[in-house]
């Protein structure tokens, strides 16, 4: 009896992996927007921070701390340096108008960088926004049991993971960079200085956090909890450890990039002899290498993990 030929793989000639991958990128990007509650809360936090910054700017608070220190020696000096006050002329006469302007700008940028950029933005908003969207990339599908539809398609798992990461970037980078720009804009001149100086640190930290938290989404059943434990417990504890221990935290390298950029501008955010920073170039290399390493690790983990609970 003659043998019938093997059933031909009918789908193969008309399909393209690259096309499927790109469609998954678009689909994942669109589906991130469906998490409306999350997007609204993120925007709400941004609005709240921007509003507080704008209020501080309107009250000219960025200049106050530095001059309060000066006022310990001479209260009149504080009065003199409040812009528009009659004593401004005295200060101008004492330090020279240009000198006062430079001192004022640097002081304001320093205060803004330390108390808003480092403490609130890099310390809270950036990790939170990154973890919210990044843990949802894979974790959201796991939570909603919809991962099965992706894994049933003929896309290799590393490609699925990579597509999720690429789709995630517009959200995390957009929110972090856009949010940073908005908060800086609300702070006026010191904010614009901070934006110019620190955007690379924000971008690199965003990429590294996004890669880390997406990996957590692939590896853990409750990635958001693990990520929040990492961000607000380990990052803070490790990031404030004395000596070189803090170098295992992502925030440390972002902070180092900030320190160097600030230093070039003549601003000192932290004391180098206490903080023991690495130079900016090393920090960039570490953050980018970390991003790529975490991304590859995530692809491997996602390729090997059996998602019993989601399929």
């Amino acid at each position: 009896m003659a043998l019938i030929q093997q059933p031909r793989p009918t789908a193969a000639p008309q399909t393209s992996l690259l096309r499927a991958w790109w469609f998954l990128v678009l689909l994942s990007w669109r589906r991130q927007a469906r998490a409306r509650q999350m997007v609204w809360i993120a925007l709400g936090l941004l609005a709240f921070t921007t509003a507080m910054t704008a209020v501080a700017t309107a009250a000219d608070l960025w200049h106050r701390p530095r001059f309060r220190q000066l006022a310990v020696a001479d209260q009149m000096m504080l009065d003199a340096l409040v812009p528009g006050s009659p004593a401004q002329a005295v200060a101008d006469a004492t330090f020279g108008a240009a000198g006062v302007a430079v001192l004022t700008d640097q002081s304001a940028a320093q205060v803004f960088a330390r108390w808003v950029v480092a403490a609130i933005f890099l310390g809270f908003l950036l990790p939170l926004w990154s973890l919210s969207f990044a843990t949802e990339a894979i974790g959201g599908d796991r939570e909603q049991n919809s991962l099965i539809w992706l894994l049933a398609r003929p896309l290799p798992r590393p490609m699925v993971y990579l597509a999720k990461f690429v789709a995630l970037l517009p959200w995390t980078v957009g929110l972090n960079m856009g949010g940073f720009a908005l908060v800086c804009a609300a702070a006026g001149r010191p904010g614009l200085t901070a934006l110019r100086l620190f955007w690379p640190a924000v971008l690199c930290a965003t990429l590294a956090f996004a890669a880390l938290f997406q990996l957590m989404g692939a590896a853990f059943r409750r990635p958001a909890i693990v990520a929040i434990g990492y961000s607000f417990f380990l990052e803070i504890i490790l990031g404030n450890m004395p000596g070189v221990m803090k170098r295992v935290s992502i925030g440390f390298y972002a902070h180092c990039m900030m320190l160097e950029a600030a230093d070039r501008h003549g601003i000192q955010i932290d004391r180098p002899n206490v903080y023991w920073p690495v130079d900016g170039t090393t920090a960039i290399i570490v953050l980018l290498t970390t991003t790529v390493t975490l991304l590859v690790m995530g692809m491997v983990v996602f390729s090997r993990t059996q998602y019993h609970d989601s399929v």
Binding site: Q14, S16, F23, L27, N145, W149, A152
Partner: peptide, 29 residues
């Protein structure tokens, strides 16, 4: 072709959109 027991979809989509999405994810034009 797998018809799973799991009853979760991309609930925000219509039936047609869902099937078309699956087709696109298979690499079709």
């Amino acid at each position: 072709g797998y018809c799973p027991e799991v009853d979760s979809f991309y609930e925000e989509m219509s039936g047609r959109q869902f099937i078309e999405t699956m087709a696109r994810l298979s690499g079709y034009t």
